[in-house]
């Protein structure tokens, strides 16, 4: 099972990213552990400048924008 982390300090875009991830999981029928990382100190460990960030298995996949559902399905 993959671990998906959504990095962001709780802005609307970060919320939207979480919704997209949940949709992608539902549509693909796959399972993954979804975790939201809202603590700025945690976020900065990933060395990113823009949020939201999508991290799959500790690897940065998308940053600075809200992904598309199909895009996320491909990453699962």
């Amino acid at each position: 099972m993959k671990t998906i982390k959504i990095l962001g300090m709780g802005c609307p875009s970060c919320q939207a990213t979480e919704d997209v991830v949940r949709q992608a999981l539902q549509q693909s029928g796959k399972e993954a552990a979804v975790e939201k990382v809202e603590d700025i100190q945690e976020i900065m460990k990933y060395n990113v400048l823009t949020t939201p960030v999508l991290v799959v298995d500790e690897e940065i996949k998308i940053k600075g924008r809200v992904p598309d559902v199909n895009e996320v399905i491909e990453l699962l």
């Binding site: 970060c14 700025i40 990113v48 400048l49 823009t50 600075g64």
Partner: peptide, 15 residues
């Protein structure tokens, strides 16, 4: 303008 990105950017610059 997204205040939520300005903090990570701020730290990124400092770093």
């Amino acid at each position: 303008f997204c205040s939520c990105s300005s903090v990570p950017l701020f730290i990124g610059f400092v770093k």
